[in-house]
Design a protein around this nucleic acid. Structure first.
Lengths: 337, 337
DNA sequence: TTGTACGCGTTATCAG
DNA sequence: CTGATAACGCGTACAA
């Protein structure tokens, strides 16, 4: 009953009365084996509890059946959902997820080496600290990479993105149409490309409307940082009428701080918009006006592209961009006179 | 520049003018190599861009440096936080996370086989569908398992748990002290052990207070299911004065439904308690009264126990239980007369 | 279709 | 301390 030694293909071969290679072939599709032997092999394999050893197979086929997913433990509520979806899609393609955490640029080289030694089939990168040097390393090692919501200059790697520009312009349009003139932009962490991009786009959108010198506060994507940043700003400035936040979680923090400590009603006194469309924004107490990223499509495409590039590494890199969906919540209203 | 062929230890050996085994030894600690050769080997290895191939090492050492984490895509907000912490702790122990999703019992055998073929060093199980049969399979394969918030009868596997009994009794105590007599218990998904346990404990705690025949509604841990369950219940019953929910997310759903569609104020007309202590319960609009699981301690212990059992597989299984921390929010108040 | 023999890249054993 | 040599468990030419 208790199997101390792993059952190998040799064991099966011996019992089934065939050669080891016959066993190997029986477990592969599209190989020349007679139905009779395959049947016999599979039967005794089942009987002995034999499963081909993935590690040995990796060594010879040079495919590990694993995809590295590099993520940050950043407090962005979208990532868990994204990770879960990626895992599902990759499973369908018969690839497992090998998880890597990247919180500071310092750990990057370390992670890269690990990924390389583990011989992963491909990489999906959600993490903040990721530059063209990293991309080049993967290219040198011939490992396909798909960037998620990250475009690296020269886009020598494939990427799937949400169109932040369209989304943020749409949000600013709404605010502008409601007559807002006094804005605050709440940026995310400095080391995050997404955060920087969203912040810059917000400023650009406002400039396009003729609104210049917009003040910028800085948070780290977390709820608390949203509260803190707004609180700090209010301590030394007069209240804006609209806040454009780089993500939903901070937006909710701003709303709570405004309501609780600043005596501001939302949306009567203050309009707030976020970005991402995480589940919590649909909760009744907030009903944030935001842009929802199409994470189902994005994750599916990320996996499809990656699998395609694993199969044909010389295929050109591609970029796919989706528009976000505007979510008309209840945190935006006309400016009061 | 472009390395089409992987650099092996033989390549390094040839260039460094030593044997292949010398190269191998140079990369291991506590092996007999002279400083001089090690230095030379490491230098040329670095020059050639050589890193030992983890796959080949796995094949011979029978240790993969990977731990399987089995999770559900259940809408329980705690899991992302837990997963992230597990990943960090495991990295510190030089183990990678190989991710598996388990949503229905059907996929269990499939996943078990995958885990087995990948020769993981150990398993941490967060998933709902997990019985003693699965545990036995791992035992047969000599793979250490640590259950997270799951106790399987006979506890032949180690587990780390939050003391649900203490937590729920404490919550019920508070409600009882406030004079509540009309309760509703909101259960989680039927196939989740945690959900069932919390539900039964709530009933038991209430029975101890002399409150019998408590009505039970059923959700699936999600916000929407919380709203729906409460809405359904209200359609055919008079309003309870207190709702005990099996997790925080559903509790927030109940609060929103009560406020928005039932004309009930929380906590004036209705008291609501949850369980888990996810970040969102601290948001100002909710401030849910709940019990916070000590996930830092729990994840650390899970990893420590697992690593210990990997090193010494014959060590006895152990169970560690933590009390949850009561979070006094603002969703519980005295019953109105 | 089947079996033989070799190789994947490393660690482990054992003389020297 | 060092170098040859044997595993590890499988896929795959090649010959039969």
């Amino acid at each position: 009953m208790n199997k101390h030694k792993r059952v190998t293909s040799y064991d099966v071969a011996k019992v089934a009365g065939v050669s080891q290679s016959a066993v190997s072939r029986a477990f592969q599709t599209g190989r020349s084996v007679s139905d009779k032997t395959r049947e016999k092999v599979l039967a005794t394999a089942n009987e002995l509890g034999y499963k081909p050893n993935a590690i040995a197979r990796m060594l010879i086929t040079k495919r590990s059946g694993m995809v590295a997913v590099i993520s940050s433990s950043r407090v962005n509520l979208v990532y868990p959902e994204v990770l879960s979806l990626l895992n599902e899609r990759l499973s369908e393609k018969n690839e497992r997820v090998l998880l890597f955490n990247l919180d500071d640029a310092a750990g990057l080289d370390d992670i890269l080496e690990h990924i390389w030694t583990f011989q992963v089939d491909g990489v999906i990168a959600l993490a903040a600290h990721f530059d063209h040097k990293s991309i080049n390393k993967f290219k040198q090692h011939q490992i396909p990479v798909v960037l998620y919501n990250r475009r690296v200059a020269g886009h020598s790697a494939s990427s799937v993105c949400c169109n932040h520009e369209q989304g943020i312009f749409e949000l600013v349009d709404i605010l502008h149409d409601f007559g807002h003139k006094d804005y605050l932009v709440l940026a995310g962490p400095e080391d995050s490309d997404v955060a920087q991009e969203r912040c810059e786009l917000a400023i650009k959108a406002l400039t396009d409307k003729g609104i210049n010198d917009v003040p910028v506060a800085c948070g780290d994507f977390s709820y608390q940082s949203g509260r803190q940043a707004f609180s700090n700003y209010m301590a030394s400035h007069s209240a804006p009428t609209a806040v454009v936040c780089s993500n939903d979680t901070m937006a909710i923090g701003v709303i709570d701080e405004a309501r609780e400590n600043c005596g501001l009603r939302v949306p009567e006194d203050l309009s707030v918009v976020g970005f991402d469309g995480v589940n919590a924004v649909f909760w009744h107490s907030y009903q944030l006006t935001t842009v929802k990223q199409p994470i189902e499509q994005m994750t599916k495409a990320a996996v499809d592209i990656l699998v395609e590039q694993i199969a044909a590494p010389d295929n050109p890199a591609q970029l796919r961009v989706w528009s976000g969906a505007l979510v008309q919540g209840k945190t935006v209203g006309p400016v009061r006179n």
